[in-house]
Amino acid sequence: MSNLKTILQAKDLKLGYRKGPKETVVAENISFELKTGELTCLLGPNGVGKSTVLKAIHGQNPPLEGSLLFEGKPLSSFDQTDLARKISVVLTEKITSANLTVGQLVALGRTPHTGWLGRLNPTDKEIVENAIKATNTEYLHDRRLSELSDGQLQKVMIARALAQDGELMILDEPTAHLDLVNRYEIMHLLRQIAQTRNKAILVVTHDLDIALETADQFWIMQCGAPLITGLPEELVLQDKIDQLLQSDQLYFSLVSGKVQIKAPSPSIDVKGPAHLIQWVNSALKKKNISTQTLNRHFSIQILEAPLRYEVTDSSGKTMHSSLTEMIEHIQKSKSSII
């Protein structure tokens, strides 16, 4: 982490599309810095223009206004091959070439560095092998892409981007469609690559909790407002995460570090071990059970070893061995009263 270097710098970008004299602005007031050795997560609701930001950085859709500097020089001054040697991408696009093996795919990452035949020299081969090693996908080397799971495919695509060996790597929702374990693995892998290989990595993601855990920087995009950048924890403490939630129903809880539904907490008397109470409360909340909705008082005592629940209300005490059973009991007595 010692040699953090700003490689990409944007100031007051205005992004959009120009067709003749007509200008369609997608996003404005975008300023940011990308540093090597850091993992940056770009968060924002669908349709806010995250892909447009990626396209601008990638040189596909130059900004309408503002300055975008790569290593101190305007991004537009780089030609396509130069840019390909500096920036690599992992897209959401599905790869259809099932005949490619993993080794061949990763080797394709060397395309901007090889001669016209695309032959790999020993250095290229070493970089390819290193990229495969860094993503822990050696065991997949000779497999065909059609034989890979989504998680494996994503790691291999990261290896390909790594083999391209630029200073900046951009990933568009690399964890979409993946299971929980793969989401964590991919994000931690990216963090590790950023640190050990001193790359700047920019990830678009919707996984707030995993991003909070892994990212060095957050960029938060929202409709019609400037881009918010900063340390993830800082943004949490400044209540900026709520900006992501364009809904009156949701809020970001500082306590749990999770997005939660704004609803009166069930004023039910639940007693027992603290780590268990929140789960009982959350189950009751989903079923909309509280003193207010039931219009009568009752209390729950959680007992451990074995786990069971004791409900006390006007009709007396009952013991339940599962949450389902307990909720059924409460709901039944509720309907019998009304």
């Binding site: 390909a84 790869i95 395309t111 035949l117």
Partner: peptide, 23 residues
Amino acid sequence: IVFLKSFNAMLLGETYAESMGVN
């Protein structure tokens, strides 16, 4: 023959090919 390498890059689709320097 001139564009042989580009055809391999095209296996990953236009956007990937462009990101690898293919015009």
